[in-house]
């Protein structure tokens, strides 16, 4: 399984990527939407974990742009915000309430979410 982590907090995504690698998940990370879109030209991913609030391209906008480039990719939103409006929009975009997570996120919950997505899409980790 290959995932891409997108969040403007570099220390967060770099550490999470390292921890995911210990669990057999190949994870790349970038810190903004432009880098994420460029990265899609270099590699393909099963799942993108996207911070909702980022400078430049917002998480929701980025998801739409990435999905247009890679229709098979699945998305999980993470956010520090917990507003009802954000939750509703993020859940709808990601395809369900379970794919909108509030920080701090437990890594085992995230890994379980990956498995859930892959089972639903018929892929294997």
């Amino acid at each position: 399984m290959r995932v891409i982590l997108i969040d403007d907090e570099e220390e967060l995504v770099s550490t999470l990527a390292e921890r995911l690698s210990f669990r057999g998940i190949d994870a790349d990370w970038v810190t903004n939407g432009d880098e994420a879109l460029k990265q899609l030209d270099e590699a393909s991913y099963d799942i993108a974990i996207v911070d909702v609030k980022m400078p430049g391209i917002s998480g929701i906008q980025l998801k739409r742009m990435m999905a247009a480039k890679c229709p098979e990719m699945r998305f999980i939103f993470v956010t520090g915000h917990g507003s009802e409006e954000d939750f509703k929009e993020g859940s709808e975009e990601a395809g369900g309430e379970g794919f909108y997570l509030v920080k701090p996120v437990e890594i085992e919950d995230l890994v379980n979410k990956f498995d859930e997505i892959l089972k639903a899409t018929g892929a294997e980790s």
Binding site: E9, E11, L12, T15, L16, E18, R19, K53, T79, G80, H81, V102, K103, P104, V105, E106, I107
Partner: peptide
């Protein structure tokens, strides 16, 4: 939002 980010980073570092 800022505090949540800090907590998330501490959480990942503690997890590591």
């Amino acid at each position: 939002h800022e505090i949540k980010n800090v907590l998330a980073i501490i959480n990942e570092n503690a997890g590591l």
